[in-house]
């Protein structure tokens, strides 16, 4: 696998934290905690993809679901408004998907 997961993950967390409203800095701590709970699964999805064990459509579907789960969990942090939760989830998944695409390009 050509993706440096550690780097992609750190960027994804930073992107999600960056999307959080700066008026609620304590929310960033929870964003990180929530993302940590999903990290192993997201990494596994990348591994499965890299092994060619699931097709692209399935992977995309799973990543969309992860995005929705992240948004729902972010929204559960009371200080976060819906827009911030959506932005944070979108930002995190965009970094992961971009990292995946980069990996595919490198492999190709």
């Amino acid at each position: 696998m050509s993706i440096d997961w550690g780097e992609v993950w750190a960027s994804a967390v930073t992107a999600a934290e960056g999307a959080v409203n700066t008026k609620a800095p304590q929310a960033k701590k929870y964003v990180r905690k929530i993302m940590q709970a999903r990290e192993a699964r997201l990494k596994l999805l990348m591994d499965v993809w890299a092994d060619g064990a699931l097709d692209e459509e399935t992977l995309e579907q799973e990543l969309r679901e992860e995005r929705d789960i992240l948004e729902m969990e972010f929204l559960a942090v009371r200080v976060m408004v819906k827009k911030a939760a959506q932005d944070a989830a979108n930002a995190a998944l965009k970094v992961i998907q971009d990292g995946l695409l980069t990996g595919i390009n490198l492999v190709a």
Binding site: R41, L44, V48, L54, E57, T58, Q61, I69
Partner: peptide, 17 residues
């Protein structure tokens, strides 16, 4: 979160696994 979980979805999950 759980690891990989194969299940009924629309569209269907597909692949070698």
């Amino acid at each position: 979160a759980p690891g990989i979980v194969l299940r009924i979805k629309r569209p269907r999950m597909k692949g070698r696994l």
